[in-house]
Design a protein around this nucleic acid. Structure first.
Lengths: 232, 232
DNA sequence: GCAAACACGTGACAC
DNA sequence: TGTGTCACGTGTTTG
């Protein structure tokens, strides 16, 4: 009931509503979103109402200081492709809006504790989640970092040393522990991986590391577990 | 220049602009946002322009079927506290909008690769980042989990088995890799830690694990690196 | 110039 | 009752 007059008033918003009804048909011809029927419903009823449009006219009297030109041009030169422009503008904005909201629901889908809320607090909770997630991943990665420097050395002989995170999965699993004068290196790799013990020892020699103990154990069908202790 | 006529037309949007100017003062009295001065500027110029308001009148002729009531009530009953209501509504919406956008810039601050873009793609990249982050954290946590069950066994003899993450730093470092029929166990512990090899082998025997290879290497002054391969 | 993105004011709806 | 959120259409700006 309230929608009726509001929409009719909206109809007389601008550009005297002479052929406003077909403009409405232009817009309404593309529903562009089938979900959220409750929001779509009043628009449909609007078209039904504006078929018998009130034929409103806007008369503007400018009694102030001279501003005649700016008020008249828009109403006069509005004919040619202006209405189509407006319709496409409306559609574009509508599309943008709906893809933004569906980005929001996608966000709520990916983040666990995010059920339903207003957009701002959704973003706030998302930010908190991201922060705690990335501090967790840095904490977990800190543990892996013990073998970082020796990892770099081994990678130089295997592949280029960029994008260490991705390449890590393909490369042999290497871990190292360092004290003030000793280093413990553990390697899990495939047999015949081009990573023989002699190669590793060669690298360690270049680092002025003196191997004091080592063990190579077979694990599974084609895996080796190599453990090396060396002095700096 | 274009703003001038557009804002004047905006003035005649609804409710014939009789005392519209003081309403505008009501709204504009609270800037409510100091940042983004370029967006604020046209509003100020609007108030300056609407001081000499064009005094526009809207005449509505309804030649269709009877809809006289809906068009008249809003303009008649609008007097009492309606204008203040509208002003507060505008302010509230303004505030909501600005805190949403600043949530967006906060999001761009927390997410590394998110410089400047439209909101939708910002959300999209944020979702991707969250996904890759949480799959990374599960992957990293999976590694810790491989030594979980044997960790529990060792902890039973050492300490109570609650809060494994915290206690992990105090307890001997244990890691395990499991295939379909074999298990690799790595232990780094202090010498004379009450964790002799015989104790470990006893535990493994209770799990029906058959040890096929093992190595115990000294590392540092008081550390042992123990590696065990066992069949299920 | 045009397409896209944004901020705005406004009506509707929920708590 | 009001307070807050949302979607809408619109004007303006930018690349």
């Amino acid at each position: 009931m309230e929608q009726s007059y509001s929409w009719e008033n909206w109809a007389l918003d601008k550009e005297m509503g002479e052929d406003e009804e077909e403009f409405l048909r232009d817009i309404l011809s593309k529903p562009a979103f089938s979900s959220e029927s409750e929001s779509q419903a009043p628009v449909v009823s609007c078209s039904a109402k504006s078929k018998r449009a009130p034929m409103t006219y806007i008369l503007s009297f400018d009694n102030s200081t001279i501003t005649p030109a700016p008020s008249s041009p828009p109403t006069l030169e509005a004919q040619p492709g202006k209405r189509a422009k407006r319709a496409s503008h409306i559609m574009a904005e509508r599309k943008r809006r709906q893809q933004l909201t569906q980005s929001f629901i996608a966000l709520s889908a990916t983040i666990p504790g995010l059920n339903k809320k207003d957009k701002s607090s959704m973003l706030g909770k998302a930010i908190d989640y991201v922060k705690q997630l990335q501090e967790r991943v840095t904490e977990l990665e800190q543990r892996k970092k013990r073998g970082k420097e020796s990892m770099i050395i081994l990678k130089k002989s295997e592949a280029n040393s960029e994008d260490c995170c991705r390449a890590n999965k393909m490369l042999p699993d290497v871990e190292a522990r360092v004290t003030e004068n000793e280093v413990l290196i553990e390697i899990h790799c495939e047999k015949e991986d081009g990573l023989e013990l002699i190669k590793i020892l060669d690298h360690l020699e270049n680092l002025h590391l003196c191997v004091t103990a080592s063990s190579v154990l077979p694990f599974g069908n084609s895996t080796l577990s190599i453990t090396i202790i060396a002095q700096v």
